[in-house]
Design a protein around this nucleic acid. Structure first.
Lengths: 170, 170
DNA sequence: TTGCAACTGTTTCATATGAAACTAAACTGT
DNA sequence: ACAGTTTAGTTTCATATGAAACAGTTGCAA
């Protein structure tokens, strides 16, 4: 969504201006913050867990056993954040850690029954929220949004790794 | 975009599961972070400003004069963040503050020529990035995305203010 | 006028964050 | 076998953050 009705790649006439409320990165940030904050309210107070903790519960919820590194990948969090969240979850008995047999650097992590119970309770709430959010859209629009997000994420990943070469085509 | 191909509002069969990578709030968060991080790289090092500072420059870039509170509203940042960013920008001579005539609580804020110069340099870069990002989309898709984001933001705002009544229709 | 509530912006304080340094374990090549 | 390198995860440190308390200003009503 380029600026206002300005056509993509159209050369700016005089001094280019930018309206924050129409700037895609800004809009994504505001929407994401609004949504995250609301979802966090679903579990923060009720279950006493944080956003990183919820994400870890979510990826381990299928009864999988993963290492900290694998969790970091799947949740798109960095390893420090994961490490700290796991440490909290060990304290609150939400997670089990056992040393790996083949590689003792990798610890195998599993949810405790207590955490699985929380998972079971949160999932319907989270899905219901997602459902409510997409109520603003038709079925077709929701399906299209899915594809658009996938493509934009791929593009954003590309631009993140090598933005300099592509961008200043000014 | 409800879970996988599950139809919206369909009753979950057994234990509901949630795949983070298909969960809309999660996807928005990852995309937003990727994008914000890349955009920040455009100006952080080159001009030595932070994300909050860039946002303030962006809203004042049209040579407007606003109070701190108005800036907070338009940038969707909280007043503490705005206060601190302004204080840094006063130090680095990016902003001018003069007491309001009618109401001495409100300080009138304007960009200095130095900040306007930064604005002029960043805007094309920011617009070029937005352009590159939407290259993953056709014109029609970009236009639709615009509308979808607007509607989802409105819906997210609604759900944020009174989520409890609506959500647990389980 | 003066007392009180509402408002604007700043500061404090406790917590969260990420980059970089670090520890320990496991490969690699000689 | 063992020095050098890579990998997994933790800790340190400096900074960022937001909630709540705060100070100063204004508006309103008795």
């Amino acid at each position: 969504m380029p600026q206002a009705r300005r056509k993509r790649s159209e050369t700016a006439p005089g001094a280019a201006t930018l309206h924050l409320t129409r700037f895609l990165p800004y809009r994504l940030s505001v929407l994401s913050n609004t949504v995250s904050h609301t979802v966090a309210k679903l579990y923060e107070k009720r279950f006493g867990i944080t956003i990183p903790e919820w994400r870890i519960i979510a990826v381990l919820g299928g009864r999988e056993t993963l290492s900290a590194g694998e969790i970091a990948q799947r949740t798109a969090m960095d390893k420090v954040q994961v490490s700290r969240a796991i440490s909290r979850m060990l304290d609150s008995a939400l997670i089990l850690r056992e040393a790996g047999d083949t590689d003792r650097r990798k610890a195998l992590l599993t949810l405790t029954p207590k955490a699985l119970d929380i998972y079971t309770q949160i999932v319907p709430l989270a899905l219901a929220y997602e459902d409510q959010l997409t109520h603003a859209l038709t079925e077709e629009e929701a399906a299209l949004l899915d594809r658009l997000l996938t493509r934009m994420q791929a593009q954003a990943d590309q631009l993140a790794s090598a933005p300099e070469q592509r961008l200043p085509k000014t």
